[in-house]
Amino acid sequence: MKKISIKMLPDDEYFVGHKGCGGCGGSLILRWTLKALGERCHIVIPAGCMSAIGFIYPQMALGVNAMIAPFAATGAVLSGIAAVIRAKGLTDIPVVGFAGDGATADIGLQSLSGALDRREKIIYICYDNEAYMNTGIQRSSATPQGARTTTSPSGQTAFAGSKKDLLRIAAAHGIPYAATASVGHPADFLRKLDRARQIDGPSFLHVFAPCPTGWGCATDATTELGRSVVTTGLWPLLEWDHGKIRINQAPHSFAPLATYLAPQARFRGLEANQIEALAAERDRTWVALRAWERETTNSVLA
């Protein structure tokens, strides 16, 4: 098996001509994934942006076998395909699910949980654009605190809920591999995809994917936001590998939150005290993360 890296990516394109908005982070991740896994891979996409922009009759923007799953059934369809491939004795077909944050954290959560429990060899990629973008930017449970969507105002009346921690949910199933990645760090993402491909069992990747239309940022800000969300500490790059959590990038000090928040219209209503609250929440998350890392690396089982 050839190692996946930026240098080894083939020239072949398997996701061209889709109808996504300019600068779409999700479609960039899907394009990398298909380039890396090649034409043998089978991909399952639930209702959401990627199915809306990829499969417009009579057009088929994907160059691999792909099917649309019901919104709540990505995990179930994935384990079905994986079971058939196992029964037929095929070993060279990666089975990949590519769902948005709504289809993963809200609607498809029970199905994902079932798929992780069945231990079939699947790769589940959640591209997180932090709201239901396809239907018009409604709040999902992966929307960060303080972000404006069409169903949650920003400012002092902002919705109090914070982002659902999908990595911990996946890790709690005791699966072999789960990781977070960002569109701003392609080398890191491709390394994690390579690792996920070699795992015999389910793996879960949670990838940060900016949406210029929904977030009110410039179309060319996608990759820059993908980097600043990591340097500000709001999106830790993590890797859960056989019971151990590793923090891939642990900054000594965080970049000011404004570098991430200011280019986006969805955070424009935030007031100074709310930004401070966001920073405090981030610091608490990191304390918990570091404790989790110590706890798993020093464990007697490790």
Partner: peptide, 28 residues
């Protein structure tokens, strides 16, 4: 994979492909 195969829209249903999944990477 994935290259443009334009066809005339409108005129009659008969010239539309039977199903998009019959031909991956079909860009109209």
């Amino acid at each position: 994979p994935c290259h443009l195969r334009p066809f005339k829209r409108s005129t009659s249903l008969a010239i539309w492909p039977n199903s998009p999944q019959a031909d991956s990477g079909h860009l109209a």
